[in-house]
């Protein structure tokens, strides 16, 4: 890997980001519906009040000026003001983003770990009973709808056999005497949603890992390694696994972006205060500034995740060079 590769990838990411930002601006200005009716929460306003609101949200200026203003605001991390809450979008999005990121990140790690493990076992013992079992398990998990799994977990571990929290991120209204107690509280609340969301993606990872590893295991250098007398375990883990990880990196990167906005089922079951639910509520209330901010954040996450994947690629596979 070299600097040119890094800087080119960075450059590409920035261009993508700029395009997304621009589309994001125009998309919400050609959306149907009278924004003023939404802002005022009533139809048919008096002309003066419309003017007042128009000035409040800066809609009274020509497009290009609005666009420049929008760019300048973005640099200051100002995403405008929510129609529904009449508060800065950033205030509302910030907390939600943290909630979503912690959920998505931990669920990802769980899924990557479990998926890689199951996939590797399956491929290593291809055709054996253990392969059938682990592949079967993966397919089973893969086909369970996340919301159903969530509800089942809740009724089992929150109502019937245990008292794991089923709602929100912390015990509602509790004072947390120290950060440590806060983290413990959040961790307890994370258990069920993480299992739900993690398992939901584990199945896919297992299947991809298995397929990719099987491919690699048929390559010539593996045969060579075997001929040299390496142990089977070493061949799988040391020789085959690194190459088999390449497709996984891509899938994980795509999945991560998707999870930021797409964990809505899990968020709804556990009332997790994440971005997915916020987007849904904003859509229902046609709160365009919030949607705009959320879309941008989701896009940035996808771009960053892909950028990291690109770097990992260069690292995992030294053959990848940029000319």
């Amino acid at each position: 890997m070299n600097l040119t590769y890094l800087s080119k990838k960075l450059f590409h990411s920035l261009i993508t980001l700029f395009i997304v930002i621009t589309i994001n601006f125009f998309l919400f200005r050609i959306m149907p519906g009278d924004p003023f009716a939404m802002i005022a929460k009533a139809a048919n306003l008096s002309a003066e009040y419309k003017e007042e609101l128009s000035a409040l949200y800066g809609y009274n200026q020509p497009f290009p000026i609005q666009y420049v203003k929008y760019l300048r605001q973005l640099i200051n991390l100002d995403f405008g003001m929510s129609f529904k809450y009449r508060k800065p979008v950033m205030d509302i999005l910030g907390n939600r983003l943290m909630a979503t990121l912690s959920l998505a990140f931990i669920a990802q790690i769980l899924a990557i770990g479990l998926g890689t493990l199951l996939g590797t076992i399956s491929a290593a013992f291809r055709g054996k009973k253990i392969d059938v079992a682990s592949l079967g398990l993966a397919l089973f998990i893969y086909s369970i709808p996340a919301f159903w799994l969530g509800i089942v977990l809740v009724s089992l571990f929150s109502v019937k056999f245990g008292s794991l929290p089923l709602n929100g991120m912390v015990v509602a209204g509790m004072d947390h005497a120290s950060t440590w107690i806060y983290i413990k509280d959040v961790a307890r609340h994370l258990i069920l949603p993480v299992i739900t969301l993690g398992l939901a993606i584990t199945g896919g990872y297992t299947i991809i890992m298995r397929g990719s590893l099987l491919d690699v295991l048929t390559e010539d250098y593996i045969v060579t390694a075997r001929a040299k007398g390496y142990k089977r375990k070493d061949i799988v883990i040391k020789h085959a696994l690194p190459n088999a990880m390449l497709p996984m990196v891509t899938v994980i990167a795509i999945n991560f972006g998707f999870m930021i906005g797409g964990a809505i089922q899990t968020e709804t079951v556990f009332s997790w205060p994440g971005i997915g639910r916020l987007v849904y509520e904003a859509l229902m209330a046609r709160d365009y500034p919030i949607l705009q901010g959320a879309f941008l954040i989701i896009s940035i996450t996808v771009i960053v995740a892909n950028f990291i994947a690109d770097i990992l690629y260069g690292y995992l596979d030294p053959r990848i060079k940029y000319d």
């Binding site: 809740v154 109502v159 089923l166 709602n167 709804t268 556990f270 009332s271």
Partner: peptide, 13 residues
Amino acid sequence: VYVLFANTDTLFQ
């Protein structure tokens, strides 16, 4: 404390 629920099933539980 008003506790917000995203769905009525877990609210009931």
